[in-house]
Structures are given as structure tokens and as C-alpha cells.
Amino acid sequence: MNKEMDLKAVVAQLRDGMTIGFGGWGPRRKPMALVREILRSDLKDLTLVAYGGPEIGMLCASGKVKKLIYGFVSLDAMPIEPYFRKAREAGAVEVSELDEGLLLLGLQAAGHKLPFAATRVGLGSDVMKYNPDFKTVKSPYGDGEVLLAMPAIKLDVALIHVSRADRLGNTQTDGPDPFFDGLFARAADKVFVTTEVLVDRIDAEYSDKAKSQLFERCFVSGVVKAPLGAHPTASHDAYGWDMAHLKDYAASATEEGGWQRYFDQYVKGDEASYAASVGGEAKIRALPLPIF
């Protein structure tokens, strides 16, 4: 069993109109090497699901998005992702704006093969109004409470960046917070991971870190060795986010033809030329993780 693939082979498995979920959280641990490969492709009409960061903005900027399902789309220091904002204000994409916890519950329901999750979250808010397909359900027990039935959010594919992986599809993820990578993995028909480090057998080399596995290998369809593949987002504990680069990216959103400029300057070539264009490996590895 060898699940190793390259970026192009993963993108070749994606289809127009698919629903794609992204691991990570804001500008943290986003599978950006795969996002850039999608940007280089002619894929379109995608539905994206995320606790979003620049992956959402970039795919919106390139016109590949039909619909967004999100808890937020943020670059942290820049609270609203610039191209997400542009797409929203232009009405360029359909949106399902969710409470962050509803996104969690929808993914969890999908992973558990349930039609919905019962919750109070969303009741009394405009989440109900702007997701008109959401329905309520009455508790069958004595309390009779009326709850929101948060529908399962099924993903065709989840794309997730990890710290280490092996060719069997075992993964490990460093950092203080697992975020919801495990829920994205379980909600998807197929999961493709990009990894900072790829080994033959993770049990042979990183046995002491088994607790940092967030989802089992049965969910993993493909593993791509993509060191620095989360740049410009943070990849714990290898490197922090590149706020200078993200500011340049954000600035492009205010320029005429700015996205094309960004694409030509950084994305157009391949991952080797990308790393060189943003200052090279040593510079990326020296990016500090943020302090709050």
C-alpha cells in the first residue's frame, strides 16, 4: 500500500461542482500547495467548506467558487479576508453563513452518517433566516423542546495539511490546537493530505507522537509530500504565518488587476518557483509562530 501522490494527481481527481472542505483555521495549517495547484487548473463551480483563511479568498478571486459554507473567513490580523469581502460585496458567490459551532455539528453529523444534529445554536438568530432550508425538530421526550436540526455537511473531498505522514496514510499534526481537521476528514468521501515530512512508516520513526494523529488512515486516499506547503499560513511547529506576504496579498485585492498580478508573481509556476518567489526555504522556516 502506497498512497503517495503528487499535487497534480490530486487535482486530477477533483471535478467541477464538487464540495471541498479545508482543514486548518484562518491563516493556520491550510493546504495551500494544493490550493495553488487548483488555482493553476481549470476547475470551477466549487462549493467550499471551511473555517476559512486565504484558501477561500484565493479561490474566490480566481472565479472558481459557486458557493461558500463557512464559520468565518479571516486572516486574523486582518479580520476579514480581503477577497472574501470583495466576493461577498459583489454578490459573486452564494453563501451559507454558519455559526462556527453549527459548522462543527454539520461536519460531525456527516462523519457519523446522520442526517442532522440537534442543537439550540442558531435559534433566534438570522442564521435561520439566511439558511432557509434549515428546519427545527421537536424533542420526542417529555421536555418537548424545539431544536434546530443542523443538516449534515457532506464533503466530496477534504484537503488537509499535516506535520508528518507515511505512505500508508497515517498522519500526525503538531501544534497546540487540532482545530477540526478530524471532522473534515470524517465528513469526506476522500481525503488528500499534504505533509511537511513524508516517511515510509510513521510507527518506525515517530512512535512516540502517535497521540498527535487526528484521523485514521482509512479516511486518507492520498498523501502528498509538500514541505512548506502551508505557506503563507502557519504550519505548527515548522513555521509561522507570513504576515508580510499576506499583507501584499491583501493589498492586491485593492489594485486594478491585482489578483492577476498576485497569480503571475507567485502562483503561476510550480511550488519550487513559489518558494523562491516568497523568499526561499530558509526564510519561510524562520517565520515565527504568532504570540497572542
Binding site: 461577498r88 453563513e97 438568530s125
Partner: peptide, 26 residues
């Protein structure tokens, strides 16, 4: 979340509802 216009095309897109619906009911 957003100001003005239609929800699907607001005048000003802000943060989104984030955790507010769940926080405020719980």
C-alpha cells in the same frame, strides 16, 4: 455579520456571525 444591501450582496461584509448565535443562546 454584514451591513446594508441584501444578505447575499451586502453593502459592507463584516466578520460573519462567527460564534455569536451559539454563544448568545448558551
Amino acid at each position: 455579520s454584514a451591513l446594508g444591501g441584501e444578505f447575499q450582496k451586502p453593502k459592507v461584509a463584516m466578520l460573519g456571525v462567527r460564534g455569536f448565535p451559539g454563544n448568545s443562546i448558551c
